[in-house]
Design a binder for these strands. Structure first.
Length: 616
DNA sequence: ACGATCACG
DNA sequence: ACGTACGTGATCGTG
């Protein structure tokens, strides 16, 4: 047995690395006598749990002073036996996002059995302060928490290992090859694996009293339940239509190249280069004023689309002669984005069964909104069916979907007690149509519907008249009239927003939502308080829906949450019944306001939904 | 590494 | 005192 020592908070810790079967007896002595909750961490060959070649390399366990690094190549049964020991619970950092799926998929433990015994320090940290460092928070990585809660001189294990990967194994951080190349006996690798288990244990010891003191225990429990349900969705993944997707890659590539060739005629060699596009448009005599944050003239879509005589839906406006360069740049970039970020990502990320397993981070945004990555399925183009068509239901199944109706407006109506909005909701009337009617009378033109809808969103986000005018494409004066009318019809929204800001100015710099969630505010952006509370409450309502659907036994049908929607699948002959029931379970009442849901059987693929305009 | 851009709700 | 559109993930070009 090798033993590596390292000081944490001025005290010596010992990392044990058993090499023989005899060494394991000492491990079991320690394990049996260890506290009922112990720290744990795994190291693996890569982050792609479901790819060919993925392997758990070591499983580490630790308390405040001792850790044990169990190598899987020799002792995987030992690691499994320890993880399956029902007397023990394990603190993992981001355990639901990575360690649990990895250990369950590679048969170290049953997912549900282990999930019940995991405490995820990332979840606890997010409840205390959800912000990354760049937003003024402590950050949510283990190193960042350990710096503040344990010992700021503790090594940045991940960063230091990358240095070794580069210097000793010639592997870049991006490739991640170091994780599988590094010698399993490498002293730093072993030591750091053990230290992470010690650090996660110590972080837990520091953080859990605070969670209890702030009354966040019940919320923490609920987030662990949600993370378990979502970990099952991650494991389940969803099927890719590989033949369709390969054809799609080709088609997008052809469009990308054809439009790039058009752009080249106007001197733009690379459509993805803002400086080139800017210079060429200026040379063509275009003039505009929108700037980037860096102070340069912007070449974003919002600027180029009007030049190409296109609206935000890419429909012709017939306001001017389209600038052919702007048009070509827009189209080439869109095809490239769709090809690389979606179609090719589906093919690259799929497992041996042609399933993708998006990472679903249940607590990501400051508002606790969930995020989906690898691939980013919450951001698939909705204006067109072609990308979503690549995601298909299992054989004999159909894709199904249920979504909350105008959830953020209903939350605002409830929180701010917006009388007229609540009346419209009670009649189950579309809020945007209702608003347009109140503002412009019964027979309003389409553009007035758009601007009233836009005004509603802008108010909810804390936007001003200038922003509303820009996003609606109307003059400032026109937007001001609409905003004034909106405020006189729904005066409660401004009043409530100002009240939230007053409270923030004179009290704690955070919003506490009805779920008890603490949302820190930025002093110079107090106007965001209304949106934070609204977005976060809507997220918690969706979380409640997910948990109810799961408890009712329909969890196996759910594939993915998308902010206000649950995407799922069911055998063709049950699909209509299943999604009706899912939708019924999602519906709830919030402060006396009904949060209703719509539902739909999409068809054999995600792209078959009526909203995506697929010819059927 | 960072800014700009673009995809979603 | 005033006014501020919110939240993400991913890729690309540039320095």
């Amino acid at each position: 047995m090798k033993i590596y020592t390292y000081p944490i908070q001025g005290e010596e810790t010992r990392t044990h690395y058993p090499e023989t079967r005899e060494d394991l007896a000492a491990f079991w002595d320690w394990f049996n006598a260890a506290p009922p909750i112990i720290g744990a961490d795994i190291e693996s060959t890569s982050l792609s749990v479901f790819s060919r070649g993925f392997d758990v390399r070591v499983v580490s366990f630790g308390d405040a002073y001792d850790s044990w690094v169990i190598r899987s190549d020799r002792f995987n049964a030992v690691a499994a036996q320890a993880l399956q020991d029902r007397r023990k619970r394990f603190a993992f950092h981001n355990g639901f996002g990575f360690d649990l799926p990895a250990l369950a998929y590679h048969q170290y433990a049953d997912l549900d059995d282990l999930a019940e015994r995991i405490i995820d320090t990332r979840i606890l940290a997010h409840l205390l302060d959800p912000r990354p460092v760049w937003q003024g928070g402590q950050g949510l990585a283990l190193k960042q928490l350990a710096d503040i809660l344990v010992d700021e001189t503790a090594p940045d294990t991940s960063e230091d290992l990358h240095k070794i990967f580069r210097e000793e194994y010639g592997a870049t951080k991006k490739s991640g090859a170091g994780w599988r190349l590094i010698d399993i006996d490498h002293p730093t690798y072993v030591l750091y694996s053990g230290l992470d288990a010690i650090l996660v244990y110590r972080v837990l010891m520091e953080i859990s009293p605070t969670i209890r003191a702030l009354g966040l225990g019940p919320l923490a429990k609920r987030e662990h339940e949600l993370a378990t349900v979502v970990a099952r969705q991650h494991m389940r993944g969803m099927l890719i239509d590989v033949d369709y997707t390969k054809q799609l890659v080709e088609d997008l590539h052809r469009e990308e190249e054809a439009q790039a060739a058009r752009a080249k005629r106007y001197g733009v060699d690379n459509v993805n280069s803002p400086p080139q596009v800017r210079a060429a448009l200026l040379a063509m005599g275009e003039t505009w004023t929108e700037k980037t944050d860096g102070g340069e003239l912007s070449t974003a879509g919002d600027v180029l689309r009007p030049m190409a005589d296109l609206d935000r839906n890419w429909d012709r406006v017939n306001y001017r002669e389209p600038n052919p360069l702007a048009d070509a740049v827009l189209r080439s970039k869109r095809a490239g984005k769709w090809r690389v970020s979606y179609a090719e990502a589906f093919l690259a990320d799929r497992d041996v069964n042609d399933r993708i397993h998006p990472m679903i981070s249940t607590l990501q945004a400051r508002t606790a909104r969930m995020a989906v990555s690898k691939p980013p399925l919450q951001q698939l183009p909705a204006s067109d069916w072609t990308i979503r068509r690549a995601i298909i239901a299992d054989p004999g199944h159909l894709m199904i979907s249920a979504d909350y109706k105008q959830i953020e407006f209903r939350v605002i109506a409830a929180n701010a007690d917006v009388v007229k909005m609540k009346e419209a909701i009670a009649r189950d009337e579309s809020i945007h149509e209702f608003t347009a009617k109140l503002l412009f009378g019964e027979n309003y033109p389409k553009w007035k519907y758009k601007i009233s809808k836009n005004t509603g969103f802008s108010k909810a986000y804390g936007g001003g008249i200038a922003r509303i005018a820009f996003t609606s494409g109307v003059p400032f004066e026109e937007a001001k009239k609409v905003v004034d009318a909106y405020n006189s019809v729904f005066p409660e929204i401004d009043r409530y927003s100002k009240q939230l800001q007053r409270k923030a100015r004179f009290g704690a710099k955070e919003v506490i939502t009805p779920s008890g969630r603490r949302l820190p505010l930025d002093g110079h952006r107090l106007y965001a308080a209304l949106n934070y509370e609204t977005q976060s409450t809507a997220r918690d309502i969706l979380a409640g829906g997910i948990l109810r659907v799961d408890k009712a036994g329909l969890g196996d049908h759910i594939l993915l949450p998308v902010h206000d929607e649950l995407l799922g699948q069911a055998p063709a002959d049950e699909a209509a019944d299943v999604i009706r029931e899912v939708s019924r379970l999602m519906e709830t009442d919030y402060r006396g306001v009904h949060i209703g849901a719509d539902y739909e059987v999409l068809g054999p693929s995600w792209g078959h939904g009526a909203d995506f305009g697929m010819p059927r």
